[in-house]
Design a protein around this nucleic acid. Structure first.
Lengths: 209, 209
DNA sequence: TTCTAATGTTGACACTGACAACATCCATTA
DNA sequence: TAATGGATGTTGTCAGTGTCAACATTAGAA
């Protein structure tokens, strides 16, 4: 092999420098591009310009890298929610809840494979930082619920339970939309946004008399 | 190889007879036993006592077999719901809704990998019979909602939308429970059954004043 | 009975995750 | 400054996987 001039911009050092984060980033990209089935450690390593075994210095096994990618997914989801909160500052708590809800489902539809990874069965004890990230995401939902509470609009339920119900509804809707499991005769012409608005509103107001 | 006496009980015929269903059944068992990662066409074929390529006579590829296993999962879920309906015949529509809800979540917790498969991204056009099965499952939920309607207990929402909201909530709760994503400080000591009862009740009554 | 389509087998191939042994490099310390 | 050990990356290898192609066996229709 020829030795590479140190003046080259992308000079190839023996040590990558930040391989761990690079692998997570590339994995995230490939997951978005080609889906979870096409994700292989070796392809990720290759695209990072590193040997097929280098990832094992930073991740115990493939699952550990997937968990890190899932964690990155929660970060992205958190950003999307934050953005919705930013853009709805002047609105009522209820309108903000709907804005956040739409952002959640929009994220789910944009990154379906990510969502599946994020809610896969990664043991919290094995991947505590992943668990933390998911709790942080939930906290963002809770903050909107807290606004409703402060506005005196909440029925008499534990506030945390209200947040959980919202999360559950958003996630259920996301999964069922992604799986294409809403029959046409029910869905009719409604966009995801409209479905979110209507379904979350129904939950806010209650299904029964 | 020695020729096998035709008197042997499990004589090995060249043609299996009902390989397609056998593969689905074995796949279902292995999915329950060892999870989706351990599922391989070759292991399933081996356990069926058949060569590693025999499955390709009945399934275009691995994904097609997975779709069939997912379909079997909807059948099992349907059975669980039917059983809950049987056992609650004397109860009120609302109590029957809760019974079905508990059955749904109980199934999800018992067969977590199945649930993930069932709501994976199988294109409805490619696997129409899987789509049918999922619609049949939804119909069972709808029947309980119809009871509520006939009892005059439904708020003014399209009945199909009510059914969808119930499904969404049940599925969201199932996934989030399976993923272990309810923080301890929220979950406290509540069993899944109690969580189902409380959360579904909250949705029935509404979150807001 | 004959013949053809359905069903099952054998063999091969590229790809994958993982392990072990080795190479390179960086940072600390003497 | 020099060396030395731990962190990082590489090469080689292995069993297991999904899939394709070619072939073998069989059941059922003609």
């Amino acid at each position: 092999m020829l030795s590479v001039s140190t003046l080259e911009k992308d000079k190839q050092k023996y040590h990558h420098g930040d391989l761990r984060n690079t692998l997570i980033q590339i994995g995230t990209e490939m997951l978005i591009e080609s889906g979870a089935d096409e994700l292989s450690l070796r392809k990720i390593a290759q695209r990072a310009g590193v040997s097929h075994n280098a990832p094992y210095q930073h991740f115990a096994d493939k699952n550990a890298l997937l968990a890190a990618i899932a964690e990155e997914g929660f970060r992205l989801l958190g950003d999307a929610i934050d953005e919705a909160l930013q853009n709805s500052q002047t609105l009522s708590p209820h309108a903000r809840l709907l804005a956040v809800s739409r952002a959640y489902v929009a994220f789910a539809l944009q990154y379906p494979t990510h969502l599946q990874l994020m809610f896969g069965a990664f043991a919290s004890e094995t991947y505590p930082s992943l668990a933390n990230r998911s709790h942080q995401t939930l906290a963002k939902l809770m903050s909107v619920v807290a606004e409703l509470e402060q506005a005196g609009q909440l029925a008499e339920n534990p506030i945390y339970d209200v947040g959980m119900v919202v999360w559950i509804a958003l996630h259920g809707l996301s999964v069922i939309l992604n799986a294409g499991k809403i029959p046409d005769y029910i869905r009719q012409d409604r966009t995801p946004e409209i479905l979110v608005n209507q379904f979350i509103d129904m939950i806010c107001k209650g299904l029964l008399k």
